[in-house]
Nucleic acid binder design. Structure first.
Lengths: 188, 188
DNA sequence: AAGCAGAAAGAACGATCGTTCTTCTTGGAA
DNA sequence: TTCCAAGAAGAACGATCGTTCTTTCTGCTT
């Protein structure tokens, strides 16, 4: 193809990295294209050659963010099974929301800024959420639990609430709450 | 004072009503002052006579929204006690997120658009959340539960997750999940 | 060596942002 | 009756919004 040995970092990657940082820390609507191209060291023309619009970059931003999450979860699933896998996932989430700079779930924050459920951004968010729910339900079923659907739904509610609380309340307390609640749910 | 018999609806109330509708359904940054004053039937000069800025209106919007929530909760507390009161609150939340036009928690959505935790908007959100947590902890303690703090924190996480899921997933499933989870938590 | 795709640099587009201003009109209080 | 605060109407402010454009220059491919 046309790959070759093009430079060290492509403008597209610099834009995605910058978007990943700015969109998450400041919100999406709050970040203008001016700031985006300035901090990425890219011109507007280059921006619009790689992305159809700002919303196109937003979708790519969620794509990249979701990809990283899915990688981490897959790695956990490769190392744990059943109940252990579920608790490992909750552990990973709890650790995430205690990390400095945590500002909630990038998907939930984005959803708050896009009211139209048919918008590409919202569609991507829905896909990510269904993927996570399906992963949980599968693992709960493999763990031999009698009602995987209910448990998976409860775990998703706990996760969403923890992401919110980890941002707005005390992260360490939320981490403990999330883990204990998941433990009790899976023990019942 | 200077009340008298001024007209039927004050411009301030019309602005607050319009803000309550537009901010909730479209997001805050997405609503401009133009649209605000147009749909409220008010001029810009009148807007800035009643509110110091757009952010001032945002704070007033959350104030009004929080006031309504607090009234509903107080009414429940006047009619129920202990475990019944907690389940009645969860019931009310579950019904809310099944109502047509539900778009998540107005406070959580606003928080997603205001990254700075010292901003007046975020301060008002934090106040509302602490009030709700305190209410839950008090009621859980009155119910005779040995660990009111942990239970209250778990209920807040469940509520936040339910508000998110009621918006992004299936509201009826989330309502059932919330109620069952709360029931099990309070029975343990 | 020639040529072409892509990036840099920056001007420019109309539209909208939040805010302030002037001018005219009205209605309740002194 | 007099007066003044407040609302209506609308122009205008500079700034920024997302998007498109032209021009120049670099670097890989054939």
């Amino acid at each position: 193809m046309t790959t070759g040995a093009t430079e060290r970092t492509h403008p597209r990657e610099r834009l995605l990295d910058t978007a990943g940082r700015l969109f998450y820390t400041q919100g999406i609507q709050a970040v203008g294209v001016d700031q985006l191209v300035r901090e990425a060291g890219v011109t507007r023309a280059t921006f619009y050659r790689h992305f159809s619009s700002k919303d196109g970059l937003v979708v790519a931003y969620l794509e990249a963010r979701g990809g990283r999450v899915e990688e981490v979860v897959e790695a956990i699933l490769a190392a744990h099974r059943g109940r252990d896998a579920l608790l490992a996932i909750m552990d990973m989430i709890g650790d995430n929301l205690c990390r400095p700079g945590f500002r909630g779930c990038g998907f939930l924050n984005a959803a708050a800024e896009y009211p139209d459920p048919t918008h590409p951004v919202r569609v991507r968010i829905a896909e990510h959420r269904r993927w996570f729910h399906d992963v949980l339900r599968t693992v709960v079923r493999d763990a031999g639990h009698p009602d995987p659907e209910r448990v998976a739904r409860t775990l998703v509610v706990l996760r969403d609430g923890a992401m919110v609380g980890g941002h707005l309340d005390d992260p360490r307390a939320i981490r403990a709450t999330l883990y204990e609640a998941a433990e009790r749910l899976l023990t019942s």
